[in-house]
Amino acid sequence: MAAVVRRGERAPRVAFAGAAHSHAFSDARNLRALGAEIIGLWDVDDPSRAADFCAEFEVSAVADRDRLFTEADLIVSTVRTPRAAELALVVAESRTPAFFNKTVASTPAAYAEWTAAGSAPRFTSSVLRFAPKLVALAEQIAGGQLRTLDVRVQHSIAALLEPRSWQDELTGAGGTLVNFGVHAWEMVDVLLPGGRAEILDGSAAREGLPTASEAHGTVRARIGTVEVNVSVSGVDGTDVYAVRAVTDRGVRVVELAPGAAELGYHGAADAMLELARGGTPAVSAARTAAVYANVFAAAQTARRSLC
């Protein structure tokens, strides 16, 4: 991360909306390390996590959402997914730039609501989009011919079964193939920008876990002439975020190591503060639309095997 506050420049003021999961805490730490001022939190769903957030960052929980938003240079949203569209409308009315942590919708209809909520500058993304090794891989294969792309995302859903079960629910954050599928398809988009996938086949299984969604799923797809294979799992074990790209110049394999910098948290914080300073959203609406279209299509296809 590079220091964002220049000599004579006022520290960007950042308001947080929601403390539904860990990204509120990680984003606040990274933004504060860049010199931003965390000015408050609005939250109505997770009082215990909100109290922890306020204690760590020495801010108050604010009931007047509209006032908090208009006083900020940037809003960071970490609300529960079903609140994202409503919040996007409020953010648009405040005209304050905003970053929405994933996942902003669990269905195509909900995503349409989120995108239709005004025109204030905002974007959403998985932090993995900013992972340095993934960005470097995109640069390495640029200008060549990508033949096959294999993407693997593994993140245990144990913590989502209790107490954060809303993330495992299809009407909450969409379950494993949507909530963590966003990570996988964001990684695909870094290497195949804006690519809309034709989902050829897929499968999913619960593996005996007490999940409302699935323990894992895989799909085989095609984007243009590129064969794309995506595996998303939530079984117990170490997190894995990996890519294998077969190109006309050879095979490239990238596995992201644990750590905020490696996983893209620092790059995401830089992108947020660039937006706060009047910059262009780091991810275009068209590319986000492609990511979510792929997420929903892949989940729908893989889940047919559960019926």
Score class of each variant (00 low, 15 high):
L177C: 13
Q154R: 09
E207M: 07
E207D: 14
G181P: 00
G208Q: 01
A98D: 07
A286Y: 09
V235G: 11
P163E: 14
A131H: 04
A286P: 01
Y292K: 09
D73P: 03
E113M: 10
V62D: 02
E9T: 14
S125K: 05
I75S: 03
L192E: 09
V228M: 06
V5S: 11
A204F: 04
G202P: 02
V182S: 02
G208S: 06
L161W: 07
A293S: 07
T148F: 04
A221I: 10
A298I: 02
Q140Y: 10
W114S: 13
A245M: 01
R13Y: 15
W114G: 12
I141A: 12
E113S: 11
F180A: 12
V14L: 08
A131L: 01
V178F: 08
E93R: 10
T211N: 02
A11C: 07
P47W: 10
L68H: 09
D236Y: 11
V228W: 11
S284T: 15
Q145T: 15
A98G: 11
D239E: 10
A260E: 13
Q140F: 04
V235M: 04
G202F: 02
D150P: 01
S203N: 05
R252I: 00
S231Q: 10
V246C: 02
F100N: 01
R95Y: 09
Y292P: 00
S125L: 00
A98K: 00
S203I: 07
D64V: 15
A138D: 01
V127F: 09
F53G: 05
V76G: 12
R29I: 06
V91W: 04
F100Q: 00
S213V: 03
A215L: 01
T124D: 03
P12E: 08
A33W: 03
V44T: 13
T301G: 06
S305W: 07
A286S: 15
S26A: 09
R6E: 12
D64K: 06
G259H: 08
A28G: 11
S60H: 11
F69P: 01
L200E: 14
L41P: 02
I75P: 00
A63R: 09
F180W: 02
D66G: 09
A299G: 04
V243Q: 09
A289W: 02
G172N: 06
